[in-house]
C-alpha cells in the first residue's frame, strides 16, 4: 500500500479534533462526552498502528492493544459512575455536578 504516513496522521488528527470538539460541546450529556473520549482514543490508536506499519515494529500495534484494554476498563468504570450519578440526581448534565466548586 502506498499511502504516506502524513496522510494517516492527518486523518488521525482530524478525528482527534472531532473527539475533542465533542467533549467540549456536549456538556449537557455526559454520555456524549464519553463518546468523544472514545473517538480521541481511537485517533491515537490509528496513529500508533500507522507508525507501527511505517517502521515495521510491532510495538505500536501492541500499544493499541493495551489502549483497548485500558479503554474498556475506563469505559466500564465511567459508565458505572454515570449510572450511579444518574441515580443520585436524575440527570446526566455535567453542569449539575458541581460539588468540586472551589
Amino acid at each position: 500500500m502506498s499511502v504516506p504516513l502524513s496522510h494517516i496522521l492527518i486523518v488521525a488528527s482530524l478525528m482527534f479534533a472531532m473527539g475533542l470538539g465533542c467533549v467540549i460541546a456536549w456538556r449537557a450529556n455526559v454520555i456524549m462526552m464519553l463518546i468523544g473520549i472514545e473517538i480521541m482514543l481511537n485517533a491515537v490508536m490509528l496513529t500508533f498502528v500507522g507508525g507501527s506499519a511505517h517502521w515495521g515494529i510491532a510495538d505500536g500495534q501492541l500499544f493499541s492493544l493495551m489502549l483497548m484494554a485500558l479503554t474498556s476498563a475506563e469505559v466500564s468504570l465511567a459508565l458505572a459512575m454515570v449510572v450511579y450519578l444518574h441515580r443520585r440526581k436524575q440527570t446526566v448534565n455535567t453542569d449539575r455536578f458541581d460539588s468540586m466548586k472551589g
Binding site: I24, D95, G102
Partner: peptide, 17 residues
C-alpha cells in the same frame, strides 16, 4: 481566579484543552 474553579467539568475540560 477562584471563580474559574466552578466545579463544572466542562470548564475544566475547556481549560485543559
Amino acid at each position: 481566579l477562584g471563580r474559574w474553579s466552578t466545579g463544572r467539568v466542562a470548564v475544566y475540560l475547556i481549560s485543559f484543552a
